[in-house]
Amino acid sequence: MPGKPSLGLRIAFYLGMLFLHFPIAIIVLYALTTEDRTYQFPPPGLTLRWFGEAFQRQDMWAALWLSLQVAAMATGIALVLGTMVAAAMYRFQFLGKDFITVLLILPIALPGILTGIALLTTFKRLALEPSFWTIVIGHATFCIVTVYNNVVARFRRTGYSQIEASMDLGADWFATWRFVVLPSIATALLAGGMLSFALSFDEVIVTTFTAADQKTLPIWFLNELFRPRERPITNVVAVFVMLITFLPIVLAQWLTRDTDDLHGGGKTG
């Protein structure tokens, strides 16, 4: 490693970063344009009126509310199941452990469309009507690994001796869980939970297969994309959604600061 980055490297780095962030700036800019039919650049004028109009759209609020419910439910399931499997994987050595590792990674390593269509064919065969719950089942499946990654990393850094000490001092499993284990994994749970919430809140590919006429916010958004008019409303909602998902991410990063626990890299489309 030489002392200073070469000029070429610096240019490649800053251009790459520009590439990564330019589209996000464009979204914000087009939320303020006065032109609502074309993508004319530069915008002919700037206005705030789309914010007012977007907030009056009942269908947007309904979609937002559904998305929040789905994300909360899927995250709840993922928190319970992810923590259980993390505890088992950390505490025990057993046959088939590698198989479980693969099983956990599979929902995020295979393209989302596979998860989606696989669930769809199964629901069809079981004659299950698509509903709120079928959406939740799909989401929880890929949220489990997010929670698992965060919690198991925390488990590995807290020694098992703490648990033994607690039991030696007379606490039973439940007291040990409540007073020793839970406090030590609390921030990892919170971080994993928030990441999985953001993941579910933004998911569109699996959802298109598991929803009937329910519109989560991303589905609403997808329909809006093909509307010819009032395009800036889509942008306003986009900015709004970015704020809702960014805050948990930054917060999760902050909660796991000074550790290398945060496993946000596993997000897939």
Partner: peptide, 8 residues
Amino acid sequence: PLWSSYLI
């Protein structure tokens, strides 16, 4: 950018 909404 990884975590901002895919559709957006």
